[in-house]
Design a protein around this nucleic acid. Structure first.
Lengths: 230, 230
DNA sequence: GCCTACATCTTGGTATACCATCAGACAACG
DNA sequence: CGTTGTCTGATGGTATACCAAGATGTAGGC
């Protein structure tokens, strides 16, 4: 392939009209998910369809399909003859989620540490600095987003996109817990330092150290969650 | 509590009208899922809503909500401006799924081996015999169901119901692969023997041996899947 | 013969209205 | 005070209508 042809291909690719992914349903799904994750709806709270229609300004069809999606995600539970409620979470569920996260994330960071090249490390470094910035600003949601971004890079770099799907879904189920653990005073400081350990190990292409740091990080989070839930 | 009272309580419990879990949507969901898993709809095939309405004899609302659910489960993909299609599966996806299964199932069997008491062992033994029976009868779907039952007991005994949810969902995505691997001649014989190894280790309350046997079992399955997909 | 332009069909996306059922609240009644 | 009937609200299920966008087909002009 000549340089000219490559340019041509790039130009053609640039021509493509990026389709607005904005189907009303997807917007509503995103809003609902954020509302639940952000604690706007309390666990166990009933989700009344027609009320949601007014609140989101969409029709019942949309709301119902969104609820089906959230139900499959585990964020919403259906009570027979009573309709949907926000899923509740007890310590036994949370315990399992932390265990699964530990398993999946530790292998993901190890995979990432094996293959990480300069550009991945740069991306991780950027996410790290964002994480530390939001941490200094005492912004729990900012820290959450930055942490998510960090892990997203890790999983994708290691070719673990399916595991990332699973972890994302699990995280949304314990998101309220995560915000609460972040609000724990000493956590706001210790979290970034633990993730920095993971980053350092990846930067040194040391899979074992990365996995160990990851496990330590999650176990610490689980420990705080336990005190909150139990 | 006297014996009489216990009888009374049991009688009252028997009085209860078991609520038909049969909301039309759930039936349709189950049918659709089985149809996809069973290969009635080919991967990549378009799922035309109005056609499905006729085929299932339900309205579009129901069909659409079912599709939302299946979409969240990963069995159906939405193509922008073209509607839903049956999700496709390449080797990279399957590879990851087998890896995650290996991680989750091996810890699950180890957990089960740690705590398994007589009643759990009896249940597993029953599932084992069912598995070997269907295997002798050369019934791939029977083997699949029996294997599922075996693992279900394992996960629940070890208190890993969340992991079971995840594994179930992953399994439905590779179900066609599983049927195909089962159809591989030597697999029909080797599968049960490998699971018997797991059972033996659990029966001996030997977590390490159980985990190792489980990993071997999944790796063998992945190997066959690879030859099919690649 | 080929290309264009228009009409039509199909499909998904959305909104709305209707019905039957059931749960919870509440008032009437003994 | 407890039982009973009623009413309202929420839900599941369904049907229908409208719109927008792609696909298809077809006729007309070059």
């Amino acid at each position: 392939m000549t340089v000219l042809m490559k340019d041509n291909a790039e130009n053609l690719a640039a021509l493509r009209i990026e389709t607005p992914p904005a189907t009303l349903r997807e917007i509503a799904l995103d809003r609902m998910r954020r509302a639940i994750i952000g604690g706007l709806f309390q666990p166990g709270e009933r989700l009344v369809e027609r009320t949601l229609c007014e609140q989101l300004g969409v029709s019942r069809s949309v709301i119902r399909e969104v609820i089906r999606h959230l139900e499959a995600e585990g964020l919403v539970e259906m009570l027979a003859k009573q309709g949907p409620i926000v899923a509740t979470l007890d310590w036994d569920d949370a315990r399992q989620i932390y265990e699964i996260r530990a398993a999946l994330e530790s292998t993901a960071v190890a995979d990432c540490a094996k293959v990480a090249g300069p550009e991945i490390k740069a991306a991780l470094r950027k996410a790290m600095s964002e994480l530390e910035r939001t941490s200094r600003q005492n912004s729990p949601v900012g820290v959450l987003d930055a942490t998510t971004e960090f892990y997203k890079i890790v999983f994708e770099a290691g070719g673990n996109n399916i595991a990332w799907e699973i972890v994302s879904r699990l995280n949304s189920r314990i998101s309220r817990l995560r915000v609460m653990t972040l609000s724990t005073s000493n956590r706001m400081a210790s979290g970034p330092s633990q993730i920095r350990k993971i980053f350092t190990a990846i930067d040194a292409n040391n899979p074992d150290a990365a996995a160990a740091a990851c496990r330590a990080h999650i176990e610490a989070a689980a420990e705080i969650a336990k005190t909150i839930l139990a």
